[in-house]
Design a protein around this nucleic acid. Sequence first.
DNA 1: AATTTGACCAGTA
DNA 2: CTACTGGCCAAAT
Length: 104
Amino acid sequence: MILNRNQKIWLVVSKIPFGKVATYGQIAELAGLPRQARAVGSILSQLPRSSDLPWHRVINRKGKLSISPESGKYMEQKARLEQESIIFDGDKIALKTYQWNGEK
DNA sequence: AATTTGACCAGTA
DNA sequence: CTACTGGCCAAAT
């Protein structure tokens, strides 16, 4: 069973634990696709709404959400994270302890 | 086939 | 802290 690029990324994203977040670059790295952070964002942007992947746990390296704040999805992502007891300090996550290190 | 776009990143000022 | 830059590379155009 060979996994295509999308499947590798989906797999890694699905492993991000509840209450934790990961960066695009980290996802790309863990998926065996170094330096393809942008591809991760591109793929996540195309997820169907029916998807049950924790896409909201993927943020950028600055600790902020990479969606335009005007977009409705921005609110949705923030709400989903707060629902996992992740606290925000303005527009960025408050604690780096939220950051997933990639371990199981 | 060529060019542009994008839910990124790292360094620098 | 923000702003700008060059780098990166798959997807879309």
